[in-house]
Amino acid sequence: MEKFMYLFRGGENHAHNAQDSEAAQKNMQAWGAWMGDLAKKGIMVGADPLQPTGKVVSGTKKIVTDGPFVEAKEMVGGYLIVNANNIDEAVEFSKGCPIFAENGKVEVRPLQKMEM
């Protein structure tokens, strides 16, 4: 069993964009139901949404700036780690994600094992 990380990019109603509206409520329910199903099947390992911006620390001088400022549709809004046998399976599991209904996308990335 391997671990994969889903990076959620964009999504009009995704966590940080969600307003206290009925649509947003409904959207959160869809996410809850999807992840609930993944958890029940032992696929879900962990997940968290992210706020849109924070600080960026860069360079040898460790310069701290606000950011990152990227296009909304590229913005990482959260992550989810899953158990899957291979990347095809991980991709398959991601297809139930509600983000597709709100113009977002899922980036599926295998976790790298570091050779010692």
Binding site: A15, M28, Q29, W31, G32, M35, G36, L38, A39, M44, V45, G46, A47, D48, P49, G78, L80
Partner: peptide, 11 residues
Amino acid sequence: PLLKSEYTLGF
């Protein structure tokens, strides 16, 4: 996993 994730904790 659902209780530990902010996505799903409240839900």
